[in-house]
């Protein structure tokens, strides 16, 4: 039994205001702890260097999914299981629900939260490419007020973001503007379950008479952050789906990705598979 976990402190505030006060009184000293599915693995491996945490789990201000005419607002503590169980999310934002079903396994999906996944900022996180293609916005809150930022651009580099030390993610907002678009996602990993992706793709597109009217492409595990492949999107937009366009899209994508070699895969494999996933989608769209 590895009973002697590193010493650390965990505060359990009764409400969000109390939690935000801790973050604002001593910025950077206290860090948020949600379902803990990422942090616990590091903690038990002795690799979690930070030692002072504030448990947000169960705070009602951060839970629940609200449907509005123009958007769906997801509380940051919404679990992967809760997303999959939500009828409107499943119908309109299936890529997010599919990614939720790939994340860990059921027992992890009952604890892991969407806000935690964003804040943890792993470039290999499965749900984040879906947020990129849906043009999600994040509501960030601190003791001094709240602000809404686009999710695209939230991550500024490997595991860094625009989130200030006194802020937490309150909600994730998905605009209901992509009804009728073709939606597709793929995960490539060692196993279907519990494997961290070698590459994953989320994409939505709208085509008419074989011409790409609009396309949004996002990949996980191919760059220091989840990547929206805007240069490749620009190459494909307005083009008829044929061999020339597919080759141009493939070339643009290989130029845009910045994968690395690591324990899970190689940069070369990731680039080739990502390009194959794009080609597969374009052929489906044709």
């Amino acid at each position: 039994m590895r009973a002697y976990l590193p010493e650390y402190e965990l505060k359990t505030p009764a409400n969000l205001a109390e939690a935000l006060r801790l973050f604002s009184d001593e910025p950077g000293v206290w860090r948020p702890f949600a379902g803990g599915t990422d942090l616990m693995v590091l903690l038990e491996a002795g690799k979690l260097t930070h030692t002072r945490f504030v448990s947000l789990w169960g705070l009602p201000e951060l839970t629940g999914i609200e449907s509005h005419d123009d958007q769906i607002i997801i509380g940051a503590l919404t679990t992967y299981s809760q997303m999959q169980a939500h009828a409107a999310l499943r119908a309109e934002f299936p890529l997010l629900c599919e990614a939720a079903s790939w994340t860990g396994a059921v027992a992890i999906q009952n604890r892991g939260t969407l806000g935690g996944n964003i804040a943890n900022a792993s470039p290999a996180a499965d749900s984040l490419p879906a947020l990129l293609v849906y043009d999600a916005e994040l509501e960030l809150i601190s003791a001094n007020g709240s602000r809404v930022v686009p999710y695209n651009g939230f991550h500024t580099g490997y595991k860094t973001s625009v989130l200030r030390p006194d802020e937490v993610i309150k909600t994730i907002r998905l605009p209901r503007t992509t009804a009728g678009w073709r939606q597709h996602s793929r995960k490539v990993g060692t196993r279907k379950a519990q494997a961290i992706s070698k590459v994953c793709l989320a994409t939505i597109a709208h085509s008419e008479n074989g011409v790409v009217q609009a396309i949004r492409l996002a990949f996980g595990s191919v760059a220091p952050t989840p990547l929206r492949a805007t240069a490749t999107e620009a190459v494909l937009k307005g083009q008829p789906i044929n061999a020339v366009t597919i080759a141009a899209g493939r070339a643009a994508l290989l130029n845009e990705l910045k994968p690395i070699d690591d324990v899970r895969s190689t940069a070369e494999y990731r680039a080739q598979v990502a390009a194959n996933l794009l080609v597969e989608f374009l052929e489906m769209l044709a």
Partner: peptide, 16 residues
Amino acid sequence: LLDGKPVKSCAVLAVQ
């Protein structure tokens, strides 16, 4: 089962 749902109890803090 925690509140009826499966969780991995090695990855849940007792406080939570």
